[in-house]
Each structure stands twice: as C-alpha cells, then as structure tokens.
Nucleic acid binder design. Structure first.
Lengths: 347, 347
DNA sequence: TCCGACTATGAAAACGTTTTTATATATTTG
DNA sequence: CAAATATATAAAAACGTTTTCATAGTCGGA
C-alpha cells in the first residue's frame, strides 16, 4: 500500500559523510569555505546516495521557485509554439522552468495572474492578453513579481512590455507592392476591425498609400476573424468585383490564413495569382511554405519575443534591472512567390 | 532597494481573526469541524487581507506540487500544441499545473526525467521519447512518481503507455484507395526508414495490399525526414517515373508535409491530382485545410492523448489506480479532396 | 452531580532546505 | 606566550504550511 520510496535528504547525506547538514548545503551550493577533504567526503556521499536537493524545500527557503509562468489565451496556430521555443531556450540556459497557463477571457486572466502571483507559484509572469486588455490591466496593477505584457501597447505602471510594430509592418508590405511592383491598386484585408493589431496594420496600409499619394479610400476590408474561410469569403464578396482584367493589383492580408483564403478564392474565380494579383500575408506561419505558391509575408519575430520576455524577468529578479522597459520589434518582409517576385513571376 | 512587498501569511490571518493558524488552515482546506461563527471570522479576515496560501509551503508540507511535467523533444509542428491543449484541459479541471520541459537526445531525456523527478519538482511526468528510446527507458526505470510514455510501444516495467495504432491507420488509408477508388497502384512514401512510426505505417500499407492480393513489391519509398521538401524530392525521383498516363494511382504519405510535397511535385510535372493520382496524408495538421486542394488524411487524436496522459497520472496519484495501463488509440480517416473523393473529383 | 464522550480549538512537530549565529581549532601578531 | 584574528564546522532559526496530538469546554445519561 505504501510503495512510496522515501527519497534521500540532506540529512542522510550529512550522516553518511559524518558532517552537519550546513556543510552539505555549502558543498551543494558552492558557498563559503569548505576544507578540500571535507568536500570530497560530502561529494562522495552525494554520489553514493544519489542525492538531489528537494526543490520544494529549496523553494520555500529561498523564497523562489525558479519558475516563470507563461499565460496565453490559447494554444492555436504556431504562435504559441514559437513563443515557447524562444522562452524555453532562454529559460533553460538560466536554469529556470516554464509553467504554461491558459486564460482567455478578461475574468479568467485576472484570476490566473492574481492567483499564480499571490501564491508564489511563479517568480514572474509573461502575459499574453486577450482583446479586452485594459480591463485586465486595471485589476492586476498591484501584483508582486515581475510581469511582462506581450503584443499590447501598455503605458501604465511598472510593467515590462514587448510588442511588434504592426503599423510599420503593414506599411512595408504595402510599399513593397507600390515600390517594387509599381502597383497602384493595393487592397488591405484585415482581421476583425476591433482588433488592435488589425487597426495598427490598417493604419500602416493607409499611411503607406498616403506616402505615395494614393487615395486609400474604399480599399480596406475586414474579416470577422483571422481564418482561411473568412479570407476566402471577403475575397469573393469584396475584392473580386473590383478586379479589372487589364490592371495589376496587390493585396496585403491580415495574416497568412487570410492570405491563403484570398489566393484560393481568386484562383477559383480564374484570376491569375500572382501574375495579375499579388498577395502578401502576415506572420510567416508554417503554411507560408507548405503551399504550392509560397507566400510572401511579414515575419513576426515570435521566438525572439519569447526569449526577450524571459530575459526581462530574469533581469528583474536578479536585481540588475529595476526600471521597466518597452521593447518594440520589427516585422520583416520575407519575399517569396505570392507577391509576384518569385518563380511564378513570368507566368 | 527592497520593494519586496512581504506577502500575507496564515499567521497574519490567524492574528487578525483572533484564532490559531490551525483553525485558519482548517477553514481554508475545509477539513475537520469549525464552529460557524469562527469560520465566518476567519473568512472575513482572509477576504480583508486578500490571503492566498503560499504554494511553496503547501508543496513542502503536502509533499506534492500539483504539477505535472510534460517533456517533449521539440515544439515544432502542431503536435505539441494539440497535446498541450488536451493536457491542459484535463489538468486545469483538476487543479494541477503543467510544466513544459524540452529534451531531445537520449542523454538529455534521461537527465531531465531523473532530475525533475528526484527533485520532486513535479508529481508525475508525461514523456514523449525521441528516437533512441530503448536507451532512455533502460535508465529511468527506477524513478519515483508516475510516468506516462507517449507514442512508443513500451512493454517494460510499471509504466503507463499511450499510443496510436499507426499500422492500422496506414492500413485503412491504403484500403481507402483500393476499396473506395478501386485503385490497384498504391504507393507508400514514408518518413525515415528507421523511424518506428514509419515502420508501423509501412507495415500497415503492406498488410493492406496483401489483404487484397496485390504485390507490395517496389511500392514503398522513404524520405530522409518528414518534410515537404523530401516529399517533393522523392515524388520527383521515385514516383513520377512510375506513372503511366493511362493508369490511376494512389499514394499514402507518411505525414501531411510529405503529402503536400508530393502533390506539388506531381502538379509541377503536369500530372493531374487528384484525378489521376490521389494522395492521402497522415496527422491532419493545419496545412491539410489551408491548401487549395484539401488534404485527405489520417487524423491522430493528439488532443485526446494529452488528456488521457494527464488523467492517468492523476489517477495514479490519487491511489485509485495502481496498475499501469496501455491505451491504444485509433487514427481516423478524414476524407477531403486530395484522394479524389472531393469537389475536384470529376475534373 | 459526576463521568465519559464528543466538540472546537490551540500548541507543537514535521516537511527539507538555506542562512545566520555560535564555537571550537588553527594561525598570526605584538 | 598571550591575545587577536582566521578558518572550518556545527547548531539553530527561519521559510509557511499541514497535521497530529493535547486540552479545555459542553453535553447527555446514570
């Protein structure tokens, strides 16, 4: 009934080596001075007994867990995986662990953050906010440990903040069509109109056209969400009717899913992509290179975001850095075939 | 220099409510009998002081962390995300957390498992093994807590085990071509020949052909890895030369990436897909529905695997279940367009 | 009215570390 | 050579809970 193999503690090691537990602790943590022969005795005992310090006791005593919480609204797409990749890389090389939590609605996010921090389960938290983020921020101002907010521009309080310049990204994608391809008819098909990312990207699009003296009027469309199906739908309903077979066009999509939907819709309507209509996506997700027509897209440095977020927390914990900071990363245009630059350029 | 807001402990609550810490603990954990008015006093104090029990102290005292470790070789593709989805769902509804760890090589996996278990950082571990898994298993037989092995058939020791019947999956995909489409010329293009999944799928393919009296000789090909590019390469080098324009063909691919590579290769060589050659993938990953020609593919119940894995650990921890078990899940054929069943069936 | 059983609560031990403080012993200094 | 100082180690306190054990107080029955 009790197969519970009681594990070996620092006391066992101390006894076996004929020293006190303080000495063992000093050896394990490389602290203070220990006579060479004593150290050897202790190290032998540790090896003999296969001793690993109990992390629960360490956590209590040291008042830290060596654990960072990563709170995301969902695990969909590959954003989460990339974020994890970067975060884990940085965390691992600093001996800290990552606990993944999911919290979608504002309620849930407030709950999870408060709980996890107040309980001392993590030493710091990386939070990817959902849409209603001002409500969340309002309530978590007084939490204890370091807190990094991702992807939403947060000016309040002493919070670290990492974001991507979406406006600039869409600006560059748009100017790629106007400048490199000499196209005057550029459209924008974004995600939900109330999404802050979409808003920023739409602004970049407008700014880009304005900067080359093109009227952006009636050239912006919005999907209900960031999905392939919505991209397909909007392309059929809004874009196709505007296409004149004698002109060339460019479309800046809100993300790669939408871009793919658009491309397939256009093709299904017999329109030549990318010869007559070039399309650019956003995110550089997996699907960008897993299609016949490789997607030109703006790459979001997601892995980098994860890495920096962990770095920020570690810095704050180590006391080296006390001031909160805001990091703004750029998206980068990855030119492939769907804009008309690539292998399918000349038919 | 010390903005460390020292958090409120059970002692503060006890003092504020005018009772002992044992009473507070009893109220918090709903244990033993507490007089209604005492309970009210304590609850008020808890609310007033915004008390959250320190999870580190709880962990030490209770000898558990309410944390499950999920060890994966990488975060690529969407396998990890789906696994996480299921695992988190089950974990969350049981009040346990998930710590994600990465360990790729055999060395690393042994290290991580031993460390995480011996330290008591997690109460149980879900382990997704890399290729050289016998070496790993050999060394981690004596670890303490519950351990669930994913995706590799493990017969040794007292380990829980969840796997997918890859043989049966490939069998069904193959028979779909022979039975539904009446195709005799079916090929298999798997991943690395030394991969156990590939081996099982290849066997399913051979068994299926044998079961309908077709000679599987010279119909199996292998990629160096599970990538789009390899699928493209093998299709060009091995498959295309075998295609006779008067015959119909079916191809069972090792995964969706390979399937996409094959399809694009065939199309680039001017072969009609799916009219002349049908292709089926494996995994039902994102890309299956993000292409113009929707992929027919075997869906692996990854989310379910995550859910069951967590369930197993929780059951073992609760002492309800003591015997290790092996769960074998089936892949399910998702019929879309690339096999020739769908919208593009008749040209 | 007295005794046993039960109830509500408090006191104290335990969990396994880290860290501070104390104490021998060895080494230097005047 | 005694006093001051270093050095190596041990003893004990602390971390914040849970849990066992002890102790008053209450109740019902003889």
């Amino acid at each position: 009934m009790e197969p519970e193999t009681t594990s070996v503690t620092i006391h066992n090691v101390a006894k076996s080596a004929g020293v006190s537990i303080s000495t063992v602790s000093r050896v394990v943590n490389n602290l203070g001075r220990v006579a060479p022969e004593t150290r050897k005795k202790v190290e032998n005992a540790i090896r003999k007994l296969d001793f690993y310090p109990n992390s629960r006791a360490q956590a209590l005593s040291r008042k830290r867990n060596d654990t960072i919480g990563l709170i995301v609204p969902d695990f969909e797409g590959q954003y989460f995986a990339m974020l994890m990749e970067g975060a884990h890389e940085e965390a691992n090389s600093n001996g800290v662990n990552i606990m993944v939590l999911k919290a979608k609605g504002a309620e849930s996010q407030i709950d999870v953050v408060k709980k996890v921090c107040s309980q001392g389960r993590t030493d710091g938290v990386i939070l990817m906010l959902s849409e209603l983020f001002d409500q969340v921020l309002e309530k978590i101002g007084n939490i204890s440990g370091p807190l990094v907010i991702l992807d939403k521009d947060v000016n309040l309080w002493h919070l670290d903040n990492i974001l991507v310049d979406n406006r600039l990204g869409a600006f560059e994608a748009t100017r790629h069509f106007t400048d490199v391809h000499g196209i005057k008819n550029v459209f924008f098909v974004g995600g939900s109109e109330h999404n802050v990312d979409t808003t920023a990207r739409a602004k970049g699009f407008v700014d880009a056209l304005a900067s080359v003296k093109i009227d952006p009027q009636d050239k912006k469309f919005f999907c209900n969400n960031y999905s392939y199906d919505e991209g397909y739908r909007i392309a059929c309903e809004k874009v196709v009717p505007l296409i004149n077979s004698r002109e060339h066009y460019g479309i800046v999509a809100g993300n790669d899913d939408i871009a793919c939907g658009i491309i397939d819709a256009l093709m299904d309507k017999g329109i030549n992509v990318p010869q007559q209509v070039g399309v650019a996506g956003f995110d550089d997700s997996d699907i960008a290179i897993h299609r016949r027509l490789k997607l030109t897209t703006m790459r979001i440095p997601t892995k980098e975001i994860g890495r920096i977020a962990v770095r920020m927390i570690i810095n704050r914990l180590s006391g080296q850095v006390s001031e909160p900071s805001k990091v703004i990363l750029k998206a980068r245009l990855i030119v492939r075939d769907s804009c008309g630059c690539g292998k399918n350029q000349n038919q």
